[in-house]
Amino acid sequence: MMILIPTWDTFLQAVANGLTLGSLYALVAIGYTMVYGILRLINFAHGDIFMMSMYFAFYMISIFYLPWYVAFLIVIVATGLLGILIERAAYKPLREAPRISLLISSIGVSFLLENFAVVAFSGIQRQYPSIPFFQNVISLGSVRVQRLSIFVPIIMAVLVVGLLFLVNYTKTGMAMRAASRDFETAKVMGININRVISMTFLIGSVLAAVGAMMWGMKYPQIQPYVGVMPGLKCFIAAVIGGIGNIKGAVIGALILGMLEILITLFFPGLSGYKDAIAFIALIVILLVRPTGLLGEKQAEKV
């Protein structure tokens, strides 16, 4: 196999790309990890929520000609509501049911959204609008990148710091951590479980929406199944970091993004297998450290 030795500049360029990709993964991976943390559910519909966000943005900008910042605000609100709605309609009625029913319900929602998208938005591929403000190329020393590549990691970092503050240092966050351990006792403390769960879905969906809007600018072809592969990879990122752990999801996502870009840089011959890297990483982590990098031993919820 050919190893390509890149120039220093190409290497730096790749690191920047890896950081951007990893940050996009992180925004989506957090939704998986938070929902898992509170419901012990792998929310299969999360990748499709991501897809819906991209369509929302496409319609707002390319069809309704709204300025991008207005459109983004609407997309964020709409996606957040969609996440809450999905939980209310498809997961809440199964609160007392075995966990496998919940999983199956989420697979159902995933198919539902994909098919809804085919019917409502048609199956033909659409072009995500280009937004010059984000896509202008700037030079950082000898490295030339889109503004987007700088913005994405910064936006991700700001959101993650905000989220960690919310979870670790506010009353709401304390309620979320308590509920994620023990619904019943949380209720005895006076915590409204339904509100905590809605809040979790809201946060996860909003972060996915931010990720999706940026993703569309980097990978502008959208179709109803566009959320499947990023969804899977971000789920894997969450598992690598230790599912249920927010910092873990971010670290897992950054590692995965970096790996994908750097492996294809050093081994151009492998670029066809780019999407396989995540799955190989998943297998390796499950063999070496099944609870993920920051995961603790899984205490079964009582």
Binding site: R177, R181, D182, T185
Partner: peptide, 24 residues
């Protein structure tokens, strides 16, 4: 209710467990 088996929140600190009692 002080439940059977205590049912503390094990990964919250002692102080947080105290404060969460006053959640309302």
């Amino acid at each position: 209710l002080v439940p059977e088996g205590r049912r503390l929140f094990p990964d919250l600190t002692v102080m947080e467990n105290i404060k969460i009692g006053a959640y309302l």
